[in-house]
Amino acid sequence: MTALFTPLTLRGTTFANRAWTSPMCMYACEDRTGRVTAWHRAHYAQFALGGAGLVVTEATAVLPEGRVTPQDAGLWNDSQTAAWATVTEAVHAVGGKIAVQLAHAGRKGGKYRGLPGDAHRNRSVPVEEGGWSTLGASDEPFGDYAPPRSATGDELDQVVRAFAASARRAVEAGFDAIELHGAHGYLLHELLSPVTNRREDDWGGGGRERLLVAAAAAVRVAIGDEVPLLVRVSAEDVAPGGLDAHDTARLARRLREVGVDLVDCSSGGLVAGADYSEEPGYQVPGAAVVRTEGGVPTAAVGRITDAWQAEQVLRDGSADAVMIGRAMLRDPHWARHAAAELDAPGAPVEPRYYRAWRGTVLDGLTVPTPV
């Protein structure tokens, strides 16, 4: 049995393999209501049909002002819950499992989406064009974005309640797991790092972890004891004076105590203009430190592109799952191709596709060549 295609159980949920679809922003809610559409159903179902053990959605805002762009998906109202239910149904119909990534963009919110052909990139959308006043640890902007408003304690308490409410809606919508976005300079990360949080109230100094830990604890209560809870972190801030993987490992221990089951280790995104090299597997060492020192399962992400590379990450004990992003966008059947390359019995299959896989081992049986 390969490591990549060994099942992984978190709480009461078993994932068929450890090749997971990484959360990737899509900015595809064109009507700006935060409601997902038929496009999202097709988008996420393709990864499940392609054999991914878990599909994690794009960052999904817990409040309207928590969106990265006006075209972001949301889970702050019931109409969005109903729309997401059609997506989870599509994924489940082809045998997959799906998690929602809940997020608040903080000072990095309200920007133009910057897709090919768009006129603007990495700039804030003016209020008259559908933008909004953003919320941050302070009034210091991210790069050339509009300055945020320094959040009050009451507003941060509201953010915690919003994460819990959105998590309840996610369970109602049929999601199999919940992930909190505590990375990439978004609000939970912005409050966490000493680089961006120099507050002198209860949310700063020794209370920098308060927002993320409180959100995780509130979400655990909201979703009950059976649903797996993941947190994405920037294991390394990639900023002078910022957090490193050893700091994140200490944080992971606190997250484990409030009911977090797996820490999804990315890096960076905190400050504009950070310089780091994205070589293959560049974030795996951070996941390994968090796993070893934090005593919590981890996922590794970042330029993991081929089957044997992913297999080695798991065999080395650097992580418990791998998040595949751009490689799965290029090939939604990445997991099936990886199973064939690793000659992995028990890999997830779609029997109706047998013509494409004849002569390979699927589900422990060799698919016959049709006469």
Rank of each mutant, 00 (worst) to 15 (best):
E257L: 03
G241P: 05
T14D: 10
E30D: 15
D201L: 01
G317S: 12
W357Q: 01
R315S: 08
H246M: 11
V284C: 04
L229W: 08
C29P: 11
R169P: 11
H43N: 04
G259N: 04
E172N: 10
A299Y: 04
K108E: 08
G106T: 00
V219K: 03
P297M: 00
A217P: 05
G174C: 06
T37D: 14
A162E: 09
Q101P: 10
G207D: 12
Y282N: 12
G136D: 02
D139T: 05
H181N: 13
R232T: 06
P7G: 13
M1V: 14
V159D: 08
G106A: 02
A245M: 08
D72P: 05
P332R: 03
T6G: 14
D157H: 13
T57Q: 05
A222N: 07
A344K: 01
R169N: 02
V56I: 15
L229I: 08
V125E: 11
G364C: 09
R67Q: 10
L212A: 03
A42D: 15
V289T: 14
T9H: 07
N122Y: 09
A61C: 15
D154V: 07
D201M: 02
A216E: 00
R326T: 11
E200W: 05
G242W: 01
G205F: 02
R358M: 13
F5A: 11
Q312S: 10
G259R: 02
S133W: 07
R123P: 09
W357C: 06
G143I: 02
G53C: 04
T292F: 14
D78I: 10
W357N: 01
Y282M: 12
L192T: 08
W84R: 07
G50R: 09
T134P: 14
V271H: 08
A183C: 00
P240L: 10
A164H: 00
A272P: 10
G110I: 11
R315T: 06
T360N: 02
R303L: 08
E279Y: 15
R352S: 10
V62K: 04
F5M: 13
A310P: 05
T196D: 06
W357T: 09
P297H: 00
V87E: 03
W84C: 10
R169S: 09
A287N: 01
H104Q: 09
A249W: 00
D244I: 10
Y353I: 02
A162F: 08
T33V: 01
